[in-house]
Design a protein around this nucleic acid. Sequence first.
RNA 1: GGGCAAGUGGUGGAAUGGCUUACACGAUGGAUUUAAAAUCCAUUGGCCGCAAGGCCAUGAGGGUUCGACUCCCUCCUUGCCCACCA
Length: 799
Amino acid sequence: MYPFKKIEEKWQRYWEKKGTFVARCDPKRKKYYLLEMFPYPSGKIHMGHVRNYTIGDVASRYRRTKGFNVLHPMGFDAFGQPAENAAIKNKTKPDAWTHKCIDWMRLELKKMGFSYDWKREVSTCDSIYYKWNQWIFLKMFEQGLAYKKASSVNWCPACETTLANEEVIDGGCWRCHTKTEEKQLEQWYLKISEYKERLLADLATLKEWPERVLAMQANWIGRSEGVRVYFRFKENNKIIPVFTTRADTIFGATYIVLAPEHPLVREMIRGKPEETEALKFIDKVTRESKNVRCASEVKKEGVFTGCYAINPVNNAEVPVWIADYVLMEYGTGAIMAVPTHDQRDFLFAREHNLPMRVVIQSTVSSSPQSTEKITEAYEGDGIQVNSGQFNGLPNQEAKIKIAEWMQKQGIGKIETQWRLRDWLISRQRYWGTPIPIIYCAKCGVVPVPYDDLPVELPKDAPFTGEGGSPLAKVKKFVEVKCPKCHFPARRETDTMATFFDSSWYFLRFCSPGFNQGPFNKEEAAYWMPVDQYIGGIEHAILHLLYSRFFTKFFKDIGMIEFNEPFSRLLTQGMVLKDGQVMSKSVGNIVDPDSIIKKYGADTLRLFILFAAPPETELEWDERGIEGSFKFLNRVWRIQEDLKRQAAPDLIRTMHRTIKKVTEDIENFKFNTAIAALMEFVNAIYKWGADKEIFSKLVVMLSPIAPHFAEELWGRLGNKEGIFETEWPQYDPAMLIEDAITVVVQVNGKLRSRITVPVDISEEKLRELVLADQKLNSWLEGKPVRKFIYVPQRLINLVV
RNA sequence: GGGCAAGUGGUGGAAUGGCUUACACGAUGGAUUUAAAAUCCAUUGGCCGCAAGGCCAUGAGGGUUCGACUCCCUCCUUGCCCACCA
């Protein structure tokens, strides 16, 4: 058993002392910026962190031996609610609690031997960092991108805070799962919607991002093209616009539906016999929070308003309804309903006995023309019917023609709708960046002058866990003089959502001590964009979208020259145990520290890379860990018996292994790279290695098991550290074999193999194959119709 | 409801148009040992067969191809993400 504990401590000290991983901006050298998503400092690292950071560390150490100037930083996403909760529970301060957690986590990360440049460490909760959050906010405020709006927000009664739409999951708080409510508040927003076109279009430039993430982002931005159609109320000719993406179905629009909150509703129903019932319904729906209302599988409910509207394409009189399934926030808050070609409308129409009209006829099956026989909406393509001058056209063609025609007639307007909403960043919380705004009775909303930044968090806020933000209770903080008129004024007590902090930290790492701005332009120009970003799929939408938004903003104000922050993205899979995600609530957590104690960090690193490809889920297996440990010991023992000269076959194997391992590491296929190294070790056991071969093996292992490799490297008599040396090269000439085995198939089935010289001609090979005794029974009396030869590989005889 | 993955031995996985099951775990046998651990060596998809050998097998069914785990179509299952989005 090799002395992993001693070795790991020794080399960790050596790297730190020598500054092996300290990065320096050097425009003469080729850079490589490798970044893993920084952690929230909860106190302990878990297997997910270990996996994420091991993948990154291998890539980073590998690039270093390939001669790149590597930037590989680490920091802490240190603001957020858990610190406040801990403060309430344990009677500590969020500040003290967070710093204790950071210290502990840093120690654990160091024990894993990750090659970070610790000189660049940042914590978002330090005022030298969040000062620049405030600076960025003020820049956005100047550009009109940060604005205040009274609006109904998602409110979590347990956390006593507002939540972004993105933070409401299945109708509950993303953190504590409590059902959210709606509440009216004045909130700060960032106008991310102004960047929607660019955020969508530039996805096409992210060639090295996973398809899945690109699809999720595109979905989230949610561009849809359609027509705003102007229906009119029959009684007063007032316009009621609806949005549709299916202009081809408009002749089948037999009723329209308004959201209960629609501003025209109350006025419409006034004095109608239906008024009482409609008001009751509106009241019921608006009292329900959005989550309850949007829960799937709930039956669509609605009431008739007593009004009628005119469908502008055929002047048909259609009833106007109110229903809970129409949302005020999307489109115009009103829809046209086509029960024959939209399943949701169909169910609603059948329930309430509303009229239907078929306007698209399937060309494949004969879908019924008569509405009586319809059992479900036909949502596929077909030919227009009952659609005036558009009859007979394929519906996809009609969709465009009808839209254009409506626009020309002035009864509609071609329009694009987006799903992306502006980003709500206000939080009624203490442990976050104070929003640098002052409210003055005379001057109104006044930004804090740049010279007065940072607006520091007061250290002595009270933590009772009740009644909203602790910041609002700190007089010293709240009561200020207006920077303009110097009369008493009041400070904003909301803090920023923590996603703000993480939307630009990758830029801060380029020049973490810089005090003239959020980052040094020259250094950012050198290091950025991040060449490889690695993190969990859970950040596929929000964090990545916000970071892209910030990057585009920095470009617009002339601070950077590039459009996208992350050139290449890898989303690593989760770590499972017994088929379930490791989590406290399930109680199946394996503590990385216990594994380090038992087997060492190198074994843990090796196992986590070998057990599965980085993108897929990884099933934790204690026995697999032992296998990895055994492998390292097996390598360790090679040094005891080195030969003078290695066998030619082994030298050949070495060159093949170098090729395979190099290519696999480049492509993040660590599991097969390790498999190739294992095969190489098996070959060494068979043939016996010399010093040169063993040295190459050790270098190839160094990104994966760095302490282990450094130690063996030193024992081989090297004075420089292993990360000063170069990655081994293979000789292409050594990959060529003299003899190759060609597989012989008859009608696609394996029947024989023959070994022939590499440079054999096809004719010669054909002769040899036809003379092969083994094939006799398969070829007997049958003429060979075709002779397929895949050079160096296989022959297939078709008889 | 929509989108995206995935489905291969007892297990994790390998092969992305050309020898299915690399590598590892587990299991079995052997060597070493007073013994065990550790280590080293060998065997290990299923069925038939004394053997040589043959047949079958990559979720199911069909198709394209000389040849399909791989490409196409239909279906089933699982996972993830999104979702009354008009």
